[in-house]
C-alpha cells in the first residue's frame, strides 16, 4: 500500500471503512431511488409494494422532459448562474483586495458592517428589492435575477482572508518593477488567489443554480423560468408526475457535479488556507 505521510494516515481500522460505507449508503440511497424512479415505467413508480428494479428500462420520462419547457429552463439557468458567478468573483475579489492589501480609514468598521448584512434573511429584503426592481424596470429580466445575488458576504469574507495570506513583498517587488495597481491586481493577485476563486466558483455556481424563491418571484414568463422553478412547476394538474420530476432532478445535478469535479483540485486548498478557521 502507498504511504504518503503528508496526505494523512492510512487507516487500519475496519471501523472507519464501516463508517465510510454507512456515509455512502445514507448519501447515495435517495439518489439511487431517484435514478431508478426516473427509468421506471410510470405504473411502477408508486406501486405497492414498491418495485426495486424496473421491469423494463424506459427513457420515456427523459424524452418527455426534453420536449417540455424544462429544456429551455436549463439554458436560462446556465446563463443566469454563469453571469452571477463571474460577477460575484469580479466584484468580491476587487473588494477583498482592497480590504486585505490597502490601509484606509474605517476599514475594520466597514468590514464588520458588511459581515452583519449576512444575518439579513433573503425573505426580509425580498419585497423591497422587488419594488426597487420594478421601479428600475428590471422585473422579469435576467439582469434583475442576477444583480441582487452577486454581493455575497461569504464571498468577500473568503477573498479577503485568502488575499491577506499573499505576502506584501510580492506586491512590493512588482511595484518596483513599475507595475500599475490595476495590473498588480489582474496579473499577480488574481492568479495567486486561484484556490479561493475555485472555491467561490463552486459555492456561487451551486447557490445560484439552486436559487428558488427569488427566481420564482421575479420571473413571470414561463419561458424565463430557471431549473428549480421549472422543476417545482412540473407538478402536474392531477398530482405529481414523479417520473418526469425524477428525470428532471437527475438532469439538474449534472452541471453542478461537472463544475465541482472541474474545480475540485483547487478548492480544498482554498478553504484550508483562507482561514475559514475563523
Amino acid at each position: 500500500m502507498r504511504t504518503d505521510s503528508s496526505e494523512g494516515r492510512r487507516t487500519d481500522f475496519p471501523l472507519l471503512y464501516a463508517a465510510a460505507t454507512l456515509c455512502l449508503i445514507i448519501t447515495v440511497a435517495p439518489f439511487a431511488w431517484m435514478f431508478l424512479s426516473s427509468i421506471k415505467p410510470t405504473s411502477e413508480i408508486l406501486k405497492m409494494p414498491p418495485v426495486w428494479l424496473p421491469s423494463t428500462i424506459t427513457f420515456e420520462h427523459y424524452r418527455r422532459l426534453w420536449s417540455s419547457a424544462f429544456a429551455s429552463s436549463m439554458v436560462n439557468s446556465a446563463v443566469v448562474s454563469i453571469s452571477i458567478t463571474l460577477t460575484t468573483i469580479l466584484v468580491n475579489s476587487m473588494a477583498g483586495f482592497a480590504f486585505a492589501k490597502y490601509r484606509f480609514p474605517g476599514r475594520e468598521r466597514l468590514f464588520t458592517l458588511l459581515l452583519a448584512t449576512m444575518m439579513i434573511p433573503g425573505q426580509v429584503t425580498m419585497i423591497p428589492v422587488f419594488i426597487l426592481l420594478k421601479y428600475l424596470g428590471l422585473l422579469n429580466s435576467y439582469t434583475g435575477l442576477v444583480l441582487p445575488g452577486t454581493a455575497s458576504v461569504f464571498a468577500i469574507f473568503l477573498m479577503r482572508q485568502f488575499m491577506m495570506g499573499i505576502p506584501d513583498s510580492v506586491l512590493e517587488a512588482a511595484r518596483l518593477d513599475g507595475a500599475s495597481e490595476p495590473r498588480l491586481f489582474a496579473q499577480i493577485v488574481l492568479p495567486l488567489a486561484m484556490p479561493a476563486i475555485a472555491t467561490l466558483v463552486i459555492f456561487t455556481f451551486m447557490a445560484s443554480w439552486n436559487e428558488f424563491l427569488w427566481a420564482l418571484i421575479i420571473m413571470l414568463d414561463e419561458s424565463k423560468y430557471t431549473v428549480p422553478v421549472a422543476l417545482a412547476a412540473l407538478n402536474g394538474q392531477y398530482g405529481t408526475d414523479w417520473g418526469l420530476l425524477m428525470a428532471g432532478s437527475v438532469v439538474t445535478i449534472l452541471p453542478v457535479l461537472g463544475v465541482f469535479l472541474l474545480m475540485q483540485k483547487h478548492y480544498i486548498r482554498g478553504i484550508a488556507t483562507s482561514g475559514l478557521k475563523g
Binding site: L46, P50, N210, I253
Partner: peptide
C-alpha cells in the same frame, strides 16, 4: 464528490425526493 451530492441538489428537489422516500404507501 459522492458525499457532496446532497448539497449539490436544489432544496426544492431534495424536498420532493424526501417526499417520495417517505410516502405512506410506496416510500422506501
Amino acid at each position: 464528490a459522492v458525499l457532496l451530492l446532497p448539497w449539490a441538489l436544489p432544496l426544492v428537489v431534495a424536498g420532493r425526493l424526501w417526499q417520495l422516500d417517505t410516502d405512506y404507501h410506496s416510500g422506501i
